[in-house]
Amino acid sequence: MKSTLTIAKRELLGYFASPVAFVFIVIFLLLAGFFTFMVAGFFERGEANLAAFFSWHPWLYLFLVPAVGMRMWSEERRLGTIELLLTMPVTPWQAIVGKFLASWVVVSVALVLTFPVVITVNYLGNPDNGVIFAGYLGSMLMAGSYLAISAMTSAMTRNQVVSFILAVVISLFLILAGFPPVTNLLTSWAPTWLVEGVAAFSVMTHFESIQKGVLDSRDVLYFLSVIAFSLFTTSVIIRAHRAG
């Protein structure tokens, strides 16, 4: 546990020592604001909720989160520091979790910094703050899922670009499986159970329902299992890579 935190602390310092964290936070805040107010028409809607804000998160994260996570293991492999790290008295699992937590903190900091939008909606109307809280929780879990996927793809290669692209593709698949235009395409010929089965794999389906304020344990479990599965796969990849 202590080693995990030590690794997380080092990683976090690494994120803030390089421009990665700042660039991510600034760009995320700018884009989130742009989509919420300019594209989704937050004010024109005249609704006291943050649907206009949250509905863009799956797409924003699609490109921004893999950019945060792509260096997680590929950088260690490129620099050779993975040899240093894994010959210290830690299990690979501790290192994987420590690194993942650090990146999750970076994304969460960006998310927390969107608080003015909560203040705005509370100032203008009378929103259900429970729903907003659920939305934040769902958004954080979704970001965690993308990050875990990025961790997995970054363990596959020493090339950050490859790692980024793979993470985007996998995340895109997880979005599209539940994206209405795609599911509509499926419903025209596939049986309902198949459409629902595919959609159940999607972050969209689960994020939508959390964001509406329905904190169903199945949705939370979905995100947690994506994270657990991806991190487990990361450990398998790292072990396979070391075994040669």
Partner: peptide, 26 residues
Amino acid sequence: YLPENAPSYPDMTVSGFLGFAAEMRG
């Protein structure tokens, strides 16, 4: 252990890096 080519984290300071190594060693 000193691995071949002596890898280290380029964005850390020398004492920061050594502090990290020390913490990892308990």
